[in-house]
C-alpha cells in the first residue's frame, strides 16, 4: 500500500489531483480537499502524476 499525505497548509484546492484520480481525491462543496490515505500499489502512476502536477507541491507519497 502507498500512503498519501496532503499538506493542508499548502493545498489551495487547484483540483489537479481530482482531475487525475477522482476516485482518490475529492473537493467538497467548500472546495476543501479530501483523499484516500492508503492506496493500492496498482495506482502508483496516478499518484505520481498527482504529486508532480500539484501546483503547490502539497502531495507526498510514501511506500
Amino acid at each position: 500500500m502507498i500512503k498519501v499525505h496532503i499538506d493542508l497548509n499548502l493545498c489551495q484546492s487547484h483540483g489537479e489531483c481530482v482531475a487525475i484520480a477522482p476516485d482518490l481525491f475529492q473537493l467538497d462543496e467548500n472546495d476543501f480537499i479530501s483523499w484516500q490515505e492508503e492506496v493500492d500499489d496498482s495506482r502508483r502512476a496516478d499518484l505520481e502524476a498527482a504529486v508532480n502536477t500539484c501546483p503547490m507541491t502539497a502531495i507526498r507519497i510514501e511506500g
Binding site: H14, G15, V18, P22, L27, D31
Partner: peptide
C-alpha cells in the same frame, strides 16, 4: 472564480 470543485467536473 472560487469554484475549484466545479472546474474539476468541466475538466473531465
Amino acid at each position: 472564480v472560487n469554484a475549484a470543485r466545479r472546474l474539476a467536473w468541466y475538466r473531465r
